[in-house]
Amino acid sequence: MSIRILLATAAVIALPGAALAQTTPSMSSTITLGFSSTSLDALGTGIDLTTTSLDVDSDISFGPSVNVGLDFGLSMTEIDTPLPIGIDADLMSFGFEPSYHFANGAYIGAYYRMGDLDISVSLLPITLGVDTQQSGIFAGYESGPLWVEVFYGTSDTDPGIGGIDITDYGLAASYDVMPNLEIFGSYTRTNIDFGGGDIDLSLYAIGADYDFGNGLSLYGSVGRLDVGLPLPISIDATQISLGLAYDLAQAGGGFPGVVALEVSSTNMDLGPITADATSVGLSLTIPLGNNASTTPLNSHSQVARGAYRSAISGGLAALR
Rank of each mutant, 00 (worst) to 15 (best):
4 R>G: 15
8 A>C: 14
10 A>Q: 15
16 P>S: 11
23 T>Y: 01
38 T>I: 02
39 S>E: 15
42 A>K: 13
53 S>D: 15
57 D>E: 06
59 D>R: 07
68 V>C: 04
69 G>L: 06
73 G>S: 09
79 I>D: 08
79 I>W: 04
79 I>F: 01
82 P>A: 15
87 I>D: 03
106 A>L: 09
109 G>P: 00
122 S>V: 02
123 L>G: 07
125 P>T: 08
130 V>Y: 06
130 V>A: 11
132 T>M: 08
136 G>K: 04
142 E>C: 00
143 S>C: 03
148 V>G: 09
149 E>S: 11
151 F>E: 05
151 F>Q: 05
151 F>L: 08
157 T>Y: 06
164 I>L: 10
165 D>S: 09
172 A>N: 14
181 L>F: 06
183 I>Y: 08
184 F>V: 12
195 G>M: 06
196 G>T: 07
199 I>S: 10
200 D>P: 00
211 D>R: 06
213 G>S: 05
214 N>W: 03
219 Y>L: 09
222 V>H: 13
226 D>E: 13
230 P>N: 10
236 D>T: 04
238 T>L: 14
242 L>D: 07
245 A>N: 00
247 D>S: 07
247 D>P: 01
256 P>E: 10
264 S>H: 05
267 N>D: 15
274 T>A: 12
276 D>V: 08
276 D>A: 12
288 L>Q: 01
296 P>V: 00
298 N>F: 09
317 A>Q: 07
317 A>T: 03
318 A>H: 10
318 A>Y: 05
319 L>G: 09
